[in-house]
Design a protein around this nucleic acid. Sequence first.
DNA 1: CAAAGGTCCTGCTCGC
DNA 2: TGCGAGCAGGACCTTT
Length: 271
Amino acid sequence: MPELPEVETTRRGIEPAVSNAVLTDVQVRNPNMRWRTPTRALKKLIGQRIVSLQRRAKYLLLGTESDTILLHLGMSGSLHVLPTQCPPGKHDHLDLEFDHKTLVRFNDPRRFGCCLVLKEPVQQHKLLAGLGPEPLSDEFDGGHLKMLAKGRRVAVKNFIMDGRVVVGVGNIYASEALYRAGIRPGIAAGGVSAVRYSGLATAIKDVLADAIRAGGTTLNDFSQADGKPGYFRHELQVYGREGQPCLSCSEPIRSRFIGQRNSYYCSICQR
DNA sequence: CAAAGGTCCTGCTCGC
DNA sequence: TGCGAGCAGGACCTTT
C-alpha cells in the first residue's frame, strides 16, 4: 500500500510523538515480519532518546543516540500514535512506547513490512545502499531518467518503479505520473525521448507532492498516524478507473498487466 | 478464486 | 563456452 506519499504522511504524523521522546518500552507481539524483528536489539534501545526522524525511499528511520530503528510498511502496514494503555488488536505486531504516555503501534496484516535495528553508518546498510535519488530532490530530473534508460527494454512503468532508478514510486503513482506525462506505461524505457523524460520527472514530482498534500491515498488498509484516511484517492485520474471516461478526452480508461501489476492508462492521451 | 499498495532474491536469456 | 547485465517470476502473508 504505502508508497512515498503515505510513508511521508506517516512520518509527519508520528513526528510530534517521537521527536525528542525517550523510548520507554518495546512490545514485540509477532516478530515474523518480512525479516524477523530483532526484539533484543530493540529492547537494548530502551532509555534512549529519538534524535532524528527521517524518511529515505519508503523506509522510516528513527535515529536514537546509538542506533537507528528502520521501519518499512510493506504493502499493508500503518503506524498509529496512541495512548500507552490502548489494548492491541489483530495484526498489531509492534509497539514502541515513549515518555508522555504515547506509543507508536505498527499494524500490518500481510506482514510484508519490517522493523530492523541498524548500526552506523546507516546509509551503507544493504537495504539503503544503492537506492536511487529521492524523486522530490533536485538530483532527480529528466536527464537522470534518460541516462539510466539507455538501452533498457523494460516497460517505462517498471523502469520508474525500480528503486535503483528513483525511489518511492509504486504502482498507483506510476500509473498517475505516466498519465500526467502522456506516456504509455508499456513502451520500452530506452525509447523515450529526453524531452518526454523531462515531462515525466516533473509529473512524478507533481503527483507525489499533490498526494502528500492530501495525506496520501487510502484504498484499503492505509490510514494516517491519527487514524484518518488519506484523501488523494479522490484525485486519482486513472488508477482504478478502468472503463470510466478519461478526464481529458472521455475515452474509457484501460487497464493492462505490465510486469505482474495492473496498469491504468488512456489510449488516446498516452502514446 | 483472484488480486491487493512492495521489493528482495533466484534463475533464465541474451549479447558480447 | 563463459560472463555479466537485464529481465521475469516467485516468494513472503492476510483479507476481501
